[in-house]
Amino acid sequence: MDQDFSNISVYATSGNCLSPAGSNVSENLVAIDKGNLAIEKHSNSDLSESPFYGAIISETVIEKEFSKLNYEGPFSKLEKMILIVLNGIVTKYSHVFSKRCGIIFSTTKGNIDALDNAEIENYYLHNTASKISKAMDIKTQPIVLSNACVSGIMAVSVAKRLIQTDKYDHIVVVGADLFSKFVFSGFQSFQAVSPKPCKPYSKNRDGITLGEAAAAMFVTKDKSLLTSNSYKITGESSINDANHISGPSRTGEGLFQSVQKAIKEAGVKPKDIDMISSHGTATNYNDEMEAQAFSRADLAQTPLFSLKGFFGHTLGAAGLLETVISLASADENKIPPSFGFDEMGVTLPLNISAQTQSKSIHTVLKTASGFGGSNTAVIFQKFNTNE
């Protein structure tokens, strides 16, 4: 009989991120406290014929941060972003980058800008993942997870499962996506892009704001590798509602089931969840769907926020970026504000965090939803050093 590894505890630690608001977690938290949005107005004819709002990382910042690292060979903008956020993990954990350590790369479009120069080989996602893995000297074959906008948080869920099935002892999870003309024009064709910074859950919301970012965290079963600000991944689930290629279920069925199953695995009740870091894209259908799902899951009164109004929608990086920031905020016992929110714009009540709140936080729920009916929910609980 096969051994049951489902009782293996798995932890997330050493999160890091890079966005227009900061080159690390601390800088991003300071920007959030000050209300200095990553979203700005841009005029770039390579991306759009008219001015637009978006969150785009300065090339100067990327080059400055990358110059501090010791990597040889040509790397794309995306690859430099990834290696920047992975540097702390490499420094701390390279001694365990053996055959029992994996890496998961989450993205939707990867090196999408390579297509502009007909660099087809550089565009293939598995090639990007292999290049990063080789640069880090990770011995195992990298895994690419590209499942629309749930990719980032689903990568954490998959890492937990792979460790619990004894395939790996540790997994490096990294997510990144670029602001590109391809994606921007695609969302414009849906008439889903806001002319101003987006306003999740608000009555006057009128679409998304796109952004770019990279984020990373180290997932492991080895408690000796954990820092004091680590989290146990106690429950997770991914349910596809198969409603439509781009539109979510009107009843929130997939998200509701994902949340419900994550709560059950974590062994908690809805009232035990201290805050929800939601998807909150500021489109009419997504935000309404989430209100339906959270209401059905008895979470209507739980403090909830979307970070899309601050970072924009960073696609395959979003779920991981928002997890890293949410857990770092929980370390400080703070609930971030849902930037852009003003007047309630969904039909069911939600407890939107309109401004930073101080609260003792132990349990965090992160959710994401994406094209094709994909949904993921993951529950994190603060690591108890006496475990």
Score class of each variant (00 low, 15 high):
154 M>R: 11
4 D>E: 13
84 I>L: 00
113 D>L: 12
241 D>T: 09
300 A>Y: 05
219 V>H: 05
4 D>N: 15
370 G>E: 02
161 R>W: 05
251 T>D: 09
14 S>F: 09
236 E>W: 15
62 I>Y: 03
353 S>Q: 07
301 Q>C: 09
32 I>H: 07
288 E>P: 00
44 N>P: 02
104 I>L: 10
72 E>S: 13
35 G>W: 13
333 N>A: 09
291 A>T: 06
264 K>A: 14
68 K>H: 14
43 S>G: 10
353 S>I: 01
57 I>Q: 05
77 K>N: 14
15 G>N: 09
251 T>V: 08
158 V>I: 13
107 T>N: 08
176 A>M: 09
146 S>L: 05
181 K>C: 12
283 T>A: 08
346 V>M: 01
119 E>W: 03
189 S>Q: 13
59 E>M: 09
23 S>D: 15
40 E>Y: 08
30 V>D: 12
123 Y>P: 05
158 V>F: 11
32 I>G: 03
137 D>C: 14
121 E>W: 07
335 I>E: 00
379 I>K: 01
58 S>G: 09
93 Y>R: 02
348 L>T: 02
299 L>Q: 00
162 L>E: 10
215 A>C: 04
54 G>M: 10
118 A>F: 08
154 M>Y: 14
306 S>Q: 07
148 A>C: 12
260 Q>M: 12
368 A>D: 12
376 T>F: 06
291 A>G: 07
352 I>C: 01
229 N>P: 05
243 N>A: 12
51 P>C: 04
196 K>T: 15
17 C>N: 08
9 S>W: 04
220 T>S: 07
130 S>L: 14
253 E>R: 00
111 N>W: 04
57 I>L: 08
171 I>D: 00
159 A>E: 04
330 A>Y: 02
177 D>H: 11
330 A>P: 00
361 I>A: 02
242 A>K: 14
300 A>V: 01
262 A>C: 00
75 F>T: 01
6 S>P: 04
165 T>E: 15
229 N>Y: 06
183 V>I: 12
243 N>E: 12
327 L>S: 03
334 K>G: 06
173 V>K: 06
165 T>R: 10
100 R>A: 12
43 S>L: 14
318 A>R: 02
306 S>C: 09
230 S>H: 06
30 V>L: 15
155 A>Y: 03
228 S>I: 09
35 G>Y: 12
339 F>G: 02
224 S>C: 13
77 K>V: 13
216 A>R: 01
383 F>N: 05
335 I>L: 11
32 I>N: 12
288 E>F: 04
266 A>F: 01
95 H>Q: 13
110 G>A: 13
87 N>S: 15
82 I>C: 02
289 M>W: 06
320 L>G: 00
79 E>D: 09
326 S>A: 15
15 G>D: 09
114 A>F: 00
77 K>A: 13
313 H>V: 02
156 V>K: 02
137 D>Q: 14
65 E>I: 02
113 D>Y: 04
327 L>E: 03
159 A>H: 06
317 A>W: 00
243 N>F: 10
151 S>N: 14
214 A>Q: 03
119 E>V: 07
263 I>L: 11
59 E>K: 11
197 P>K: 01
62 I>C: 03
235 G>L: 02
325 I>Q: 02
115 L>F: 10
384 N>I: 11
236 E>K: 14
90 V>T: 14
359 K>G: 07
